[in-house]
């Protein structure tokens, strides 16, 4: 398969571009093909949502970008991750750790396990400055308080010496965000940042992320399974299924008229707070087994548009206009059906 073209605004150089990325895990049961030729691009100041269910490869791709995959069992047999033009996969481990944390940062779903329980939050935030910037203890602590203020933790100075368990879930996620933005990264990857949180807290965190993004020119990759969160904040969407990108589009276009049967099925299957439906259109069947991927389209076994050729040949990412793409042989039919 030829490297997928970076899409989106082609006139500007993307901040981060993932190209034809493959990631495998070697396990006792066989090789798990978690990511199979994923490509997407992020521009400065943009929010890119990567949407998918568990096993879609959305988190593994992010971990490959961060360079935090455990190798082995993970392996990256193919692909490029270009950050400001440089292929991160070609760098030495030393050079990558220069990028990690300071220029590309990441926050995780479970803030409690991502924070060290035996150190105060102040010392953990301050450590970012001490390690990467070589600041004195006193300066680093001062910066830690500033950051905690910036992520709106009330009474930052008093709470500096508290331990992670003394904070609520929402506050812990703020601390994680503080650590992630400490060194003014150019790219922030948020992996399901609000999934473990209540809706009202979720709204607070998403608002915080949006504000932080406005303050700088940071690019945000938001990894989520929640179509509602995506609709609220994203500029562009990449939909992943079975380790591939099945659709990408600007957010308004995708919700107005999905061009891939999986995206369409997802939109039809979720209950909505603003509507009372009769019956949800469930997508039949189950997600594919990554140990034993079908040769053709990964979604074919569950697809209402399936034809014979779907089972034999994996569809490439067809370009639709200048801004969209769909990995479906029958994207025209899907698009028409969506309009109708």
């Amino acid at each position: 398969m030829p490297p997928l073209p970076a899409w989106g605004a082609p006139e500007s150089e993307p901040l981060l571009a993932v190209e034809d990325l493959h990631v495998e895990f070697v396990t006792r049961q066989g090789t798990v093909k978690a990511v199979n030729g994923v490509g997407y691009a992020l521009h400065p100041g943009e929010t890119l949502a990567v949407l998918g269910e568990s096993g879609s490869g959305k988190s593994v791709t992010a971990q490959a970008i961060m360079g935090i995959l455990d190798t082995p069992p993970a392996r990256v047999p193919k692909g490029r991750i270009r950050f400001r033009g440089t292929d991160l996969l070609g760098l030495s481990e030393d050079a990558r750790s220069q990028v990690r944390g300071s220029r590309i940062a990441m926050i995780f779903q479970d803030a409690l396990s991502a924070l060290n329980p035996v150190f105060t939050v102040g010392s953990q935030i301050a450590e970012m400055f001490r390690v990467h910037r070589g600041m004195s203890r006193r300066d680093a602590e001062r910066r830690a308080v500033e950051l905690m203020d910036r992520v709106r933790i009330p009474g930052a100075r008093q709470r500096l010496h508290d331990y992670p368990h003394q904070f609520s879930g929402g506050m812990r996620q703020r601390i994680m965000i503080a650590m992630a933005i400490a060194l003014d990264p150019e790219v922030l990857i948020a992996d399901e940042p609000t999934t473990a949180l209540d809706v009202t807290v979720q709204a607070q965190i998403m608002e915080l992320l949006a504000e932080l993004k406005r303050e700088s020119d940071m690019g945000l990759i938001l990894i989520t399974h929640d179509l509602g969160v995506v609709a609220d904040v994203a500029d562009k969407i990449v939909v992943m299924y079975g380790g591939r990108v099945v659709e990408n589009a600007p957010v308004h276009d995708l919700y107005r008229a999905p061009a891939h049967p999986y995206t369409r099925g997802l939109l039809d299957s979720i209950p909505r707070i603003d509507r009372k439906g009769r019956e949800l259109h469930a997508i039949a069947g189950m997600p594919p087994n990554l140990l034993d991927m079908p040769p053709g389209c990964a979604f074919a076994p569950r697809c209402p548009y399936r034809q014979d050729d779907c089972v034999t040949a994996a569809p490439p990412l067809h370009r639709i206009g200048s801004t969209r793409g769909s990995a479906c042989h029958y994207w025209r039919e899907v698009l028409d059906g969506s309009h109708g």
Binding site: A284, G285, M286, P287, P288, N289, L291, D292, P294, A298, A300, P301, R302
Partner: peptide, 11 residues
């Protein structure tokens, strides 16, 4: 019938 996944299930 619908619940029996057509081939894509973890076999």
């Amino acid at each position: 019938r619908r619940a029996k996944s057509p081939g894509g299930s973890p076999a």
